[in-house]
């Protein structure tokens, strides 16, 4: 393995972690808002808050880790993406900031209002949509070089079918991931009403999620044939991923082993993520930037990898403790413990 591959793998791991846990968070906010409108709030709110409360800040750090690590391992990306992403990334930051702060204000500060709950739910959809534009841009065709500086063509981005398919995929995936996880969580908490409702959400978002995913591959054929060819070469990874998907849906349909169902879902997305990432190789930004020409110098790469390993040594036990105390603690999940925040 080359240093470049180690670097991108570390970043990929954390990006994937962010995608999963942030999806749960975004989707939960949306379901919560939706249930306020449809008068089912009493069913969901408790479950959602119980899960989200201790972890929301950790979710954010996954994102920070990814972009800071990116600049560390691949400093040239700071130049290319930094120059082009000013507007989409700023919008994403602002939405993230409002969302995060609002969450803290309501949970710890007792500020509650129906209008805000709905706004909160909607930001959960706009954030993945605006973040996913990075993915679209990386496919090439939207950035041109003018006076040796990269410039983003907004018009092309807004009118491209690829970019809209990616936006739609990000939304369906968020809702699907979140619904499956929360089904499991609600079941874990012995909350029958919530389990049933969330199970229904899971089943209804499964179809759209897989259809939009297939749609992207289709779009890619015309947009970036080189990438499309490499995707097709990895068909077996996608095949496996679809099998996992079928497994999840089957288990949820049969009301069985929700934990396993969520595990399969993570597997499904991990395989698809891996296949997508591997076929994107070696480009970070078609056709200007590859892993290799944007990589940092050797001594920095080694230093970062050492820091990464040492950091993981610290991080993994702490994450385990967090999950053990909250996610896997039946007493806490079921609300038997009187664990009010501070």
């Amino acid at each position: 393995m080359t240093l470049e591959i180690i670097g991108i793998s570390a970043l990929g791991l954390f990006l994937f972690g962010y995608i999963i846990i942030a999806s749960i968070d975004f989707g939960a906010g949306f379901f919560n808002a939706y249930s306020t409108i449809s008068g089912k709030q009493h069913i969901l709110t408790k479950i959602i808050h119980r899960y989200l409360s201790p972890v929301w800040e950790v979710t954010n750090v996954f994102l920070v880790f990814f972009f800071v690590g990116m600049v560390g391992f691949f400093p040239k990306t700071a130049y290319y993406y930094g120059t082009t992403l000013l507007v989409p990334a700023s919008i994403a930051i602002i939405l993230l900031a409002i969302r995060g702060a609002y969450y803290a204000f309501t949970t710890y500060g007792g500020l509650k209002h129906k209008r805000y709950t709905i706004l909160y739910g909607l930001t959960g959809l706009f954030i993945p949509a605006s973040l996913s534009s990075v993915l679209t841009i990386s496919e090439g065709g939207f950035v041109t070089m003018e006076n040796s500086a990269p410039v983003l063509d907004y018009w092309a981005l807004f009118t491209s079918p690829l970019s809209w398919s990616i936006v739609v995929l990000s939304l369906t995936a968020v809702l699907y991931i979140s619904a499956v996880f929360l089904t499991w969580y609600a079941h874990h908490a012995n909350d029958e009403a919530a389990t049933n409702l969330l199970r229904k959400y899971s089943l209804s978002w499964a179809g759209p999620a897989i259809i939009t995913a297939a749609g992207i591959i289709f779009e890619m054929r015309t947009h970036n044939p080189e990438h499309y060819q490499r995707l097709v070469d990895l068909w077996w990874l996608f095949g496996l991923s679809v099998l996992f998907f079928v497994g999840t849906v089957y288990l949820i349909w049969k009301r069985r082993a929700y934990g396993l169902a969520f595990g399969l879902l993570v597997g499904q997305f991990a395989l698809a993520f891996l296949a997508y990432g591997a076929s994107h190789y070696p480009y970070l930004l078609y056709p200007y930037l590859t892993l290799y020409d944007s990589f940092t110098n050797k001594s920095m790469a080694l230093a970062l990898i050492v820091a990464f390993i040492a950091g993981l040594g610290l991080l993994l036990p702490s994450l385990y403790l967090l999950l053990k105390l909250f996610l896997f603690n039946k007493e806490y999940v079921q609300g038997n413990r009187n664990d009010e925040h501070a």
Binding site: V55, E57, V58, V61, V71, G311
Partner: peptide
């Protein structure tokens, strides 16, 4: 980039234990 990168681990550490601390009074 090294200290910037190490900073994210400090954030993780703080965030995780803060989550635990406030819910385990």
């Amino acid at each position: 980039a090294l200290p910037l990168f190490m900073e994210t681990f400090a954030f993780f550490f703080e965030a995780i234990f803060l989550g635990i601390y406030i819910y385990t009074w």
